[in-house]
Design a protein around this nucleic acid. Structure first.
Lengths: 134, 134
DNA sequence: ATACAAATGCAACTTGGTTGCATCTAAAAA
DNA sequence: TTTTTAGATGCAACCAAGTTGCATTTGTAT
């Protein structure tokens, strides 16, 4: 069932449905928080090549299947869902204890007062603190 | 005059006043926007060793002379001023054209509604758009 | 069945950043 | 002023994240 949905998703986006992509997609579907490259590598140890993994993350991101999050740890993380668009931004919560990154879907983008001549189209917010599990 | 001020600053923070530190500090004083490692390396080509530069950036940051900015480009940038404290956060503006990073000093931190069990102590905001010069 | 584009694996590379260690220098003590 | 010493520097080696070129394989359209 979920598998059929994932196959459709890849079809829609014009991506070939390979074992690796279906496995990756399945993995993302099961998780509620963001994954770093090393998380994913650990989850698929000796199954997916480094460059293949990175290339698929890029493909998925371009297709709007996942979005890249920079949680200020220095390394990117990836979570299900398209990149936040103007008016649909969401904040990301980074737990300072367990380092888990959550998408805060109900985030409301704020109105900003910018100096003259500055124009904005994106606001990205990282909230740091302690999550419910810690 | 400025040089004397910089020397005092280093004294106050318990840092030895070396040629390199004074040059770095002077450089930061002249700039209005954030610098990446590679910006700084280019500005002091063959003058400051890689590890010395990084170590001084760390020292300056710990001393509250500069603060580190993560503009979601994947590489850190540094700008004059202490790290934003609770209640004194400021947003950072990243120009999508020239990639310049500006500190928006008059930013007012927002009140957040977080899910139950989540506690926050820091909110970091990156605003992306086009700057006044572009 | 075949043919082509796209996906994979591998190795080599780049860049940002760190670390250990020997040497040097600012600044305090004598 | 000279001596002492903690801290600063330079160098080389290292690590992790991420990218690229190329040969091979696989998915899909014909």
């Amino acid at each position: 069932m979920e598998n059929a949905n994932n196959e459709n998703l890849l079809n829609q986006k014009g991506l070939k449905k390979t074992k690796i992509r279906l496995a990756l997609l399945h993995h993302f579907m099961q998780l509620e928080h963001a994954q770093s490259y090393s998380d994913l590598q650990a989850a698929f140890v000796n199954e997916i090549d480094k460059s293949t993994l990175y290339r698929n993350l890029i493909s998925f991101e371009q297709a709007g299947i996942i979005h890249r999050i920079n949680d200020h740890s220095g390394t990117a993380k990836y979570a299900l869902g398209a990149a936040p668009q103007r008016g649909h931004e969401h904040a990301h919560f980074v737990c300072e204890n367990c380092e888990t990154v959550y998408c805060m879907e109900d985030w409301i983008p704020l109105e900003l007062k910018l100096p003259k001549g500055f124009k904005t189209n994106k606001v990205q917010t990282i909230v740091k603190g302690i999550c419910a599990k810690c």
